[in-house]
Every structure is written in C-alpha cells, then in structure tokens.
Design a protein around this nucleic acid. Structure first.
Length: 163
DNA sequence: AGTTCGGACCGTT
DNA sequence: AACGGTCCGAACT
C-alpha cells in the first residue's frame, strides 16, 4: 500500500492506495506539517490521488464530490461491506438512523452491529458514516470525534436535534 | 415533557 | 464472554 498526504483547509488527510483503489483515508492528526508528496507513486495511484484530492475538497466544502476513485473495501467483512455500500447511497443533506440502515440492508435488529460497522469504516467522508444519526435525529456517536461529525453535517445543511 | 433504567438485539474480537 | 457510534418501553420526576 502506498500512502499520500492531502492538504485541505481542515488539515492534512492521509490516503492509502492498494492495487485496487483507495483503501483508507485518515483524518488529520494533530500538529504535523508536511507537504503533499506525489513522488514514488505509480501512474495509476497518482491518478487516483488526483481524483481523491479534488473530490475530498469538494465534499469538505459541502459541494457535490463528483467522481471518487475506485474503492478497495476488501479489508472489511461481508456484513461491513454491506453496511458501507448502504451508506454510500445516502446523499448529501440526507440522513438515516442506525435502525433505518439496518432496515435497508434487510437486517432489522442488527442495529448495534450497524453502529459497529460504521465505526469500522476505513474511508470516512467518502463513505458518509457521518450521515447516520441516532433515533429521533439526535447526533449519536462518531469515532473520529463528534466535532467532526457536526462540522460535516452542518456544511451539508443538516442540523441534528439536541437532546 | 424530560430523565433514567433495563433488557433485547447482532456482528466482531 | 464482553463489548459497542442502538433502540424502545416503563417507570419515574
């Protein structure tokens, strides 16, 4: 896997590319300053990086991200990939509850497992785990920090209920 | 209305 | 066997 840094107004993300596509995206980690490094990438990875960079910046500003590179979700279990695919169908500005997602993948009752799967999502923002709220439109949790979840949602025009 | 509590549910480690 | 990014109903303020 090759890694590459992506600078945005919100910090420096880290992207991981396998031979199949974008496999992982990390939120900025505090305090390190480095510049995007494109050297040493295969032509294909370079192209994917360009796509990722452009789409990520669009997504972060609440606009339509356009085309993402192919995603490599092979690290996940079958159930997790199922959930992640369902998440990708939630458009910007829309939200679903964990129960609704469970419903959508035809496993009502697997509500908590869905929560787990969301937390295991390797490609946040691209796979919009932040658009999944708790019942009643309440914020729910977020492994990368609730501040991120709020920030992303508000840029898409979503205002969660306060409990 | 709001709050707390308890149990049921299911995939992962 | 234990833990979640949950949910719902019951039983209280």
């Amino acid at each position: 896997m090759t890694t590459a840094l992506i600078q945005t107004a919100d910090g420096t993300f880290t992207a991981y590319f396998s031979g199949t596509g974008l496999a992982r995206l990390d939120f900025p980690i505090g305090g390190r300053v480095s510049r995007s490094n494109r050297t040493g990438l295969s032509a294909q990875a370079g192209a994917w990086l360009s796509l990722t960079e452009r789409a990520l910046k669009q997504a972060l500003s609440g606009k339509s991200p356009g085309k993402w590179p192919p995603l490599d979700l092979s690290a996940g279990t079958e159930f997790q990939r199922c959930v992640w695919n369902a998440l990708r169908e939630i458009r910007s500005g829309q939200t679903k509850s964990y129960a609704q997602v469970a419903q959508a993948i035809d496993r009502p009752g697997a509500v908590r497992a869905v929560g787990q799967a969301c937390g295991a999502n390797p490609i946040p923002v691209v796979i919009p785990c932040h658009r999944v709220l708790a019942a009643g439109g309440k914020l729910g949790g977020f492994s990368a920090g609730l501040d991120w979840k709020l920030k992303l949602l508000r840029r898409e025009g979503v205002v969660p209920e306060s409990d």
